[in-house]
Computed example of a mutant assay.
Amino acid sequence: MSKIEMTKKHLITCSVILVLVIISRLNIYSTDPVYVHKTIANVPSNYIFNKHAEEAEATYNFANEALPVNDKKVDFKLKKSIAKHRYKTVQSNVLHAKADKMFPIIEPILKFYGIPEDFKYVPLVESGLCEGTSPKGARGVWQFMPGTARTYGLKVGKGKDERLNLRKSTIAACKYIKELYGEFNSWTLAAAAYNNGSVKLERAMNRQNEDNYFRMTLNRETGSYVYKLIAMKEIINKPAKYGYKNFYSYMQKPMPFLMAYNN
């Protein structure tokens, strides 16, 4: 090896050593995150984690069955449904008021029957901003038809209509939903069948040879039904994000033991 080559090799070696010394002095390899965060002016120490949390919010699901949001058609339908339920469109806090009134009664019943909690949004979608009887004869927050209501134990007729009893109609709805899940083995399809009927949904599945709700072509109402449920879940859980203000939700009330502790 020539003298020049030896000199070059020596210089490269020295340069590498110098870089390693500088890196060590700057503590870049330190496992303590404080040094990294101190170099960023006016940025909270949990900034990176907050960014990850915001990105995670983009993951939507119904009863823990995820939406294929990478599908442009699905993404469009979901965003459209959420936009329809923003405060700018609804111009009322009635949905949150209904949730405050109904959820404390509905939630424990759903839990008792083993129904996912996301089904508590069905009454908000079914009854919407209005009350009363549909043109087809469905009534109550769960919008039972008279025949279906009787099938699942509700008394309808002779001056009595238990479809209007929130507790009893929720029990009937749980029995119906559980039966639908047993038939379709999917909570998403069970929700779709609740809206359209199991017979019609099964026919559509056989005709299209498809068992994924989000890949199926259904009538307008049923095809948007689960998207409405997810949109309702979004605006109820994150009201401020969608423009809802000046509301007081039971979900945000301090628990009694916390009130006692704070006093």
Rank of each mutant, 00 (worst) to 15 (best):
N196G: 15
N219T: 15
Y227T: 00
L26M: 07
R163K: 14
Y87C: 02
T39S: 12
V125L: 01
Y194D: 05
H85C: 04
K136R: 14
Q208K: 06
P68V: 11
L124M: 13
C14I: 10
P146C: 07
D211N: 15
K80C: 11
K101C: 09
E234P: 03
V16C: 06
K245R: 15
E131A: 09
A193S: 12
A193Q: 12
I171V: 14
E234A: 11
Q91V: 01
N263P: 03
I28C: 08
K72I: 15
T59Q: 11
S249H: 05
E179F: 05
R220K: 11
Y250I: 10
H85K: 06
F257C: 10
P104G: 08
N93G: 00
T170F: 01
A66F: 08
F257V: 15
T39W: 05
A193C: 14
W187A: 05
F144W: 03
A192P: 02
V122W: 01
A66T: 11
E221S: 11
G132C: 10
E107R: 15
P44G: 11
R203G: 06
N64Y: 07
F62A: 02
M251N: 14
H10E: 12
K84N: 11
K88C: 02
L229R: 00
G197R: 01
A41H: 10
V199F: 08
N246D: 08
A191F: 04
H96R: 01
S198R: 05
N50V: 09
D211W: 13
E234I: 07
G128P: 04
V226G: 01
Y29W: 08
Y181F: 11
G137S: 10
M259N: 13
N185V: 05
W187R: 05
E202M: 13
V141K: 02
R163F: 00
L124G: 01
K120V: 06
R150W: 04
N195A: 06
K80I: 13
H37C: 12
V16I: 12
I235Y: 02
Y176A: 02
G153R: 04
Y176F: 11
S169R: 06
S30Y: 09
A53Y: 06
R215Y: 05
I235E: 04
T170I: 08
N195Q: 10
N46Y: 09
G147M: 08
Y225H: 06
S2P: 12
F257I: 15
N61A: 13
N50L: 15
Y176H: 07
N209W: 13
I17F: 08
K158S: 14
T39H: 07
Y261E: 11
A204T: 12
D161S: 11
H37N: 14
N93Q: 07
